[in-house]
Design a protein around this nucleic acid. Structure first.
Lengths: 300, 300
DNA sequence: TGCTATCCATCGGCAAAACCGATAGATTGG
DNA sequence: CCAATCTATCGGTTTTGCCGATGGATAGCA
């Protein structure tokens, strides 16, 4: 049984006869006759009462007709929904992010995306930068707000800059170097608390790089998996730290957040996506996110 | 788009690859590949991400897959329901009857039919004998408890005897001929109240025939469309009547219901159906009705 | 880094089948 | 009884679904 059989059946029912259906469908009457005979043969149920002039559906035929209509509309709906998803008008968008990641006004972005794509379901998943790369590669999420992917991910992932987060020195409030701008060489003798390379290689590597350029290799006292712990450590006197600027931590009254003198003291904050899954939906969302970036940077 | 495409798609989704699906479906891998390429072309949506080794569905493909499953199961359900209706296991049975029609224990018949065919919906429609013949011919009802169809209906309709209803004379209680058995010649001079030929030709014609055999043509005072009115008329002294035995009217205390001496003083009470629409369902119901007749007549 | 196994797309050929046009049989309406 | 209209059937044509073979691409493994 194929949809063709159902289409012919419905046409016959709607036009009252094989001949009328054949005219409507622009198919020879003999074709209709054969196909419907095949259908009856196939399902083993006579669907029509043929009596010379008038053709009518049997009781089973009427039942089948009703279900055939359902089937055909299910098929149409399948096509329609697939096309809508393909056009980015429907479906689900899974977004990765990490707390402290700024650069876009998230609520506003979501809001205007909702306006643009009312039938798209959004799913927000909190992950570290590294987790996002893996999830993007494996198709667990569709876009991520994260750091620039490491080289090993560059074949699968693409990214677009949202903003450059300046790396700042985090010091106890009364530290002599505060409030900066700081020359990192002044911190050469300090003990450092860094966030783990695992969670965010970009930040870790940048910290090491900056120290290296300042002519020293940092003495790492502690490594924390998330930036909030880093802040706690510094607050506890465990050492100083280097972290990207983050509005939330900036509010801390017991610490000094000092800019660096180094020119390249920043890490990229990007929107990333899988090259293979760069759907219309992802493209739409990305464009919107980049627009919001512009307006944000325009504001200050 | 045909169901074949959907079947292939589902098979690929369930088996993880075109090749695996081809093995499962016993079709060449190239066929699967071609058909699914056609499908994608047809609906204008890429459904798969092909990357050498592993094949995965796109977001649109996943959506389409879900809907394709619905479509396929709708198609299956269509076939199943049609087959059930054809086997008489499902559907609707529309039954015609007239009040006073006896011969079967209706509640009991319905009850045991419900037991035999639990998924069949029953619809009872009250009609005169003639209305039932027309409704049967036009497919408005499926079976009717009625009188033997007139010759003009015999090409379309068939009928099976439920019982012979004896024709009885209905007289005022104190009529000299009561309580019978009556020789119709004794009523030759009476005025008659008959039920209309339109509603029940069999009864009307039988009355005329009996009078004719008794050597007179009845003087018809009134004609009523339903038997209950006939009874009222006789009660009002309008005349005497000839009607088939009917349990309900028999209870009337002011009238005498007298058997006739004539041998052929009866009209057939039958179950009738359309020759063209003698479905399994109708056959099943008919057989049950006839069984119930037997047991009813066995009881008395 | 090759080697191999596995996957999908493509091509030519074949056979099934969908379709067509014509026609015959059947039925209805005038 | 004739004309009109319907469906089934038949032979022929074209489409197309399928097959087998092949080639390019990729992933796993040595």
């Amino acid at each position: 049984m194929e949809l063709r059989h159902l289409r012919y059946l419905v046409a016959v029912a709607e036009n009252g006869s094989f001949s009328a259906a054949s005219r409507r469908l622009h198919v020879a009457q003999s074709a209709i006759s054969e196909q419907l005979a095949n259908l009856e043969q196939d399902i083993g149920v006579p669907l029509f009462v043929r009596s010379g002039r008038k053709t009518a559906l049997t009781a089973a035929g009427l039942t089948f007709l009703e279900e055939a209509r359902h089937t055909l509309s299910a098929a149409d709906r399948a096509v329609d929904r697939a096309q809508r998803v393909h056009r980015g008008q429907a479906g689900t968008l899974r977004i990765g992010f990490f707390t402290g990641g700024t650069g876009v006004n998230f609520p506003y972005l979501i809001q205007s995306f909702r306006k643009q794509s009312p039938d798209v379901q959004l799913s927000l998943v909190e992950m570290t930068s590294t987790q996002q790369w893996i999830a993007l590669r494996d198709g667990k999420i569709d876009v991520g707000f994260t750091r620039r992917p490491e080289p090993e991910f560059r074949t699968d992932l693409q990214s677009a800059l949202i903003q450059q987060d300046p790396i700042m020195a985090i010091l106890p409030k009364n530290h002599p170097a505060a409030p900066g701008p700081i020359d990192l060489r002044d911190l050469a003798q300090q003990r450092f608390v860094l966030s783990s390379r695992e969670a965010s290689p970009a930040v870790f590597d940048k910290a090491i790089e900056l120290c290296s350029e300042a002519g020293f290799s940092p003495h790492i006292a502690s490594i924390c998996s998330v930036w909030s712990s880093v802040v706690l450590m510094v607050q506890a006197g465990e050492g100083v730290s280097l972290l990207p600027f983050n509005e939330q931590q900036f509010r801390n009254r017991d610490l000094a957040f000092c800019p660096l003198k180094a020119k390249n003291a920043s890490v990229d904050f990007v929107i990333a996506w899988a090259r293979r899954r760069d759907t219309t939906l992802v493209r739409n969302f990305r464009q919107l996110a980049l627009q919001h970036r512009k307006s944000a940077s325009a504001r200050g």
